[in-house]
Design a protein around this nucleic acid. Structure first.
Lengths: 375, 375
DNA sequence: CTGAATCGGGAAAGCGCATTCCCACTACCT
DNA sequence: AGGTAGTGGGAATGCGCTTTCCCGATTCAG
């Protein structure tokens, strides 16, 4: 990767490198127009492209923003990534991508790598977890993040704060009201259905999953319903599918038992994310069960690609792209700092409540065909 | 973004920066074990993280690989991105992401930005196009790429070669046999259906779309069938939806005309990608038409997220992730260069034929429910 | 036991750029 | 006219690291 340098351009234009620098890359001092022209001409006759590494080194700031996701092919993360990318472009910065599969140890690696590249800020998407096997990893991640922030880096994490991070200067959280929204979903579902509920959740300790489960149960309780049983499985389609099989058997057994009263064995299933819901639905269908006839099902996230799924999936719409944008903007140089953060822009943003560094977004319960209890 | 420097570490360890460098970042020369220990201890007591910018500047290579996609939230690109990311990790490099919406002008910007960051290589995914309004943009993109390669950069483009690129050293193409596969799909569809075919294509000039259309027509011809009508629309879900509406009206008009012979008005629709097919299917469904009863439909790509769509979509499976991996590996430092490129690894890879810099991948026609012509 | 070869470490020169400091010069004010 | 402020340019320094070159200390062969 050799290329022509500023010095070469300067020589060709017959000026000093300092002058060339001033004209080519914005500086407070504007050289005379004639000289500027000469330099510019020299520059593009040489096909000069400034070396961002050198620039970064000289002014210690890289124009890079690091994005950490579990899996970029997961539509949830892809949507967030789009928002991040968009905001990054606004700020004329580039995004560095890291995928970690959700393991804190890997996330720590990624943060270190970003720090090494002197990324100006880091956006971490993807559920935090408190699983015991991740404890050490979480601690290390937190330490790494703290160090990064102490060195002037800015961090935004989507969802929950990183466990153990001491929320230093420059640390932001874009909080997703999983609990409230899940509760709202539960209440709405409860108003149209008075049978049993079942929850398909992710592994215990995964905050996003746990919050949604807790919220759903609370919503159920506030509607005067008994708590739903919870099936723990993995936080992806395969997990949903597996749980779906289990539930299918349960439903079918129920149907066989009380053939006279088929509705009695019907279930309303809440899967803690759309992808799991789709997996579960596939399993049910394979077992000959129809949705919403034999069971109703709802998800969470409102993944765009899944909107054409039939029956249309009831879910909670999350402004994923907006979340990405918000998180990114929160880490922008001029963005809301330590103190007061007045109007955080964006219609769906609400005032934070935690030390002013937190930002909440909102979602919307979206009932569709998959939970219609036909009459 | 300040942080402790090598010099500080060196001072703390009581050695010269040169020595510290040698122990901390691999070098041919291995300092003595006692010294190495001292340095390492100093390093992590200081929380030293090497400055990749400075390293890059010094050895002029950045460990960065640039990825250009139309839209990271599009599952097609997301899948490729996952492959790229995976391969990048193998090579211990990081990926820089740029999304361009497919505009050559933007792509040129992205290449320039990557060049500025001194990315070691660039992977361009996303259809090339020959539309007249893009002509200038294409030329500039080609020029930019040429320059990048001349400066030692390595490029891999997925699908078609960039129009006008002079295929310099370091320029690779991962060719997708769109034409052959579309032809195969057409032949298979033709063997089970003897009515009319319609193609929903992208805008004229988009290579991927044009190739698939051409291939499909060829396949039809080789099966002794007359060419399909082609509807041009945009290369995304919205386009598919729009075309779907048009077709729905056509089908319904046909049904009304020959009520006695409903099958006569039935259509087999080939949408040039899955997302468009889904859009079209949604439109048909909204118009009260059922698939595959009133019309059959096939797509292309076999997007993973769409596999749960009902009726299951017939399509052509493309190893998207593998494509990403292959493209990335092709640009790896040690990878197949100008000359012979023996065993390109990967089961689905076949021997290139074009000057040894081309690499072909293979796909597979996958017929599912959406094109079942029930009896 | 001596000369050459080797090893292990440090000094120093960049990598490409931004930026501070400095200097020559012009314009302006009194 | 003398002085000052202001202006436009260049020289030089440093960002943090790698790498060549160099030098003293060992080691080995003869």
């Amino acid at each position: 990767m050799a290329a022509s340098t500023l010095t070469e351009v300067a020589r060709l234009a017959g000026v000093s490198p300092a002058t060339a620098s001033r004209v080519l890359n914005g500086s407070a001092r504007k050289p005379g127009p004639d000289i500027a022209d000469r330099v510019r001409q020299a520059a593009d006759s040489l096909g000069y492209i400034p070396n961002a590494q050198a620039q970064g080194l000289a002014k210690s700031s890289s124009g890079l923003i690091g994005l950490i996701v579990h899996d970029i092919a997961d539509p949830y993360f892809a949507a967030i990534a789009r928002g991040v990318q968009e905001a990054a472009r606004e700020q004329r910065r580039m995004v560095l991508l890291a995928t970690t599969g959700g393991a804190p140890a890997e996330e720590k690696e990624a943060v270190a790598a970003f720090a090494a590249r002197r990324a100006d800020s880091i956006v971490i998407a993807g559920s935090r977890s408190a699983q015991p096997e991740n404890q050490e990893g979480n601690a290390e991640l937190a330490a790494e993040l703290d160090r990064y922030c102490r060195n002037g880096g800015r961090v935004a994490v989507v969802g929950h704060a990183v466990v153990g991070a001491t929320a230093p200067e420059g640390y932001h959280v874009v909080a997703v009201p999983n609990e409230e929204l899940a509760a709202a979903l539960a209440r709405q579902l409860a108003s149209g259905w008075d049978g049993d509920f079942v929850i398909i959740g992710g592994p215990e300790g995964l905050f996003t999953s746990d919050d949604r489960i807790r919220g759903f149960q609370e919503g159920l309780a506030s509607a005067g319903r008994k708590p739903a049983k919870v099936l723990r499985t993995s936080f992806n389609r395969a997990g949903g599918y597996e749980a779906g099989l289990t539930l299918a058997h349960r439903v079918k057994a129920g149907q066989a038992e009380s053939a006279d009263e088929p509705a009695a064995s019907k279930l309303c299933i809440f899967a803690v994310n759309d992808v799991m819901a789709i997996g579960a639905a596939a399993a049910l269908r394979e077992q000959g069960l129809r949705i919403p006839r034999d069971a109703t099902i709802a998800g969470f996230d409102d993944i765009e690609t899944l909107r054409d799924f039939r029956p249309a999936l009831s879910t909670v719409r999350l402004p994923l792209e907006e979340i990405g944008r918000l998180a990114t903007r929160a880490t922008a140089p001029g963005a809301a700092g330590t103190d007061r953060d007045g109007e955080e822009s964006a219609g769906s943003a609400e005032e934070g409540h935690d030390a002013g560094r937190q930002q909440r977004i909102s979602g919307e319960v979206t009932l569709r065909r998959s939970t219609e209890t036909a009459t």
